[in-house]
Design a protein around this nucleic acid. Structure first.
Lengths: 166, 166
DNA sequence: CTCCTCATGTAAGGGGTTACATGATTTA
DNA sequence: TAAATCATGTAACCCCTTACATGAGGAG
């Protein structure tokens, strides 16, 4: 009933369960395949939150039929309502922490060599994104987001190195 | 001596002090003007960390001469060495949490209207970035980073809305 | 028979945010 | 003289991460 103690991780889990019934392990996998880059989820947060979602009556557990022990979570009607209510609330402002950019601020005027190293690090990062979120078959807004940003990042890397060359 | 208990906030403060001597309040201001968007710093973290930097011998405090009570922090030689050592270490991978994108994942196939609202929210965010990091006089790598990303974000918003129109 | 993957959890610690508390000084 | 800004700090809480713990099933 009291949804105040649900963390963002809980809503993430609820969202994936709404797409189709899953185990906690599968939710983690789904995160890794989709929102990984801008939304981290760890088991240590996931399992306790699943328990809370269950207590709140938003999901129900079903023992998996396979040989391995697992619990498949299903969305309840109340869970659907709670999820819909959460989805229409204005999203929290994005939070990011990028140590490379912070360091770049401090070295950009002092040491062009170190600045170049930091830019290289970011370049590899963006290239990894592009590899990872390669264009797929179906149109996916998140995939295209990651790709657009990564491509822009590479453009910035080129420009930044050119700036340093002066 | 023991630098292990210094948080990223401490290194941020040290970096700004290295640029020129400042008070804690001025460090906060400098963050707000530069790294704000991708590196949050709060007073509650800042002041204790300044105390630790002082205990470690990385900075020394000087009572401000003005009417108001304030401490101006100066970088020591050891502080410079520690900062340089930190700067050359490989930067930690960036961490971001964007609730809008998470919600978008869950509504993109179900409710185009809600998806449009989320895209609008991101659009306003990017526009705010562009206003805030308006091109300045001197070439600044961080400013251009923010602007490049914001512009790419707007491009994505347009494309995403077009995708939804189908 | 060993190792990797599947699968679910617990314990401890850490960095960060929000809220609270205080007081002087400038501005309207 | 009231309000906004300057300026420093503390207390409580919260979410997350890392590390640890356990055990079964499949692959080689």
């Amino acid at each position: 009933m009291d949804t105040t103690d649900l963390t963002a991780t809980a809503w993430t889990a609820l969202g994936f369960i709404a797409l189709r019934p899953r185990s906690g392990y599968e939710i983690k996998q789904a995160c890794a395949e989709t929102v990984d880059a801008y939304w981290g989820v760890s088991f240590a947060q996931l399992y306790p939150q699943l328990k809370r979602l269950n207590e709140a009556g938003f999901i129900t557990g079903e023992e998996g039929g396979g040989g391995r022990r697992q619990v498949i979570w299903h969305l309840t009607e109340r869970g659907r309502e709670a999820l819909d209510a959460w989805l229409v609330q204005p999203p929290a402002p994005p939070q990011l922490r990028d140590e490379a950019l912070l360091k770049l601020l401090f070295v950009q005027s002092l040491s062009p060599d170190q600045a170049r190293l930091l830019i290289d690090a970011k370049r590899r990062e963006f290239e990894a994104w592009i590899d990872r979120y390669e264009p797929g078959d179906e149109p996916d807004l998140l995939r295209s987001y990651a790709l657009t940003m990564a491509q822009a990042g590479l453009t910035w890397c080129d420009a930044a190195e050119k700036t340093l060359a002066d």
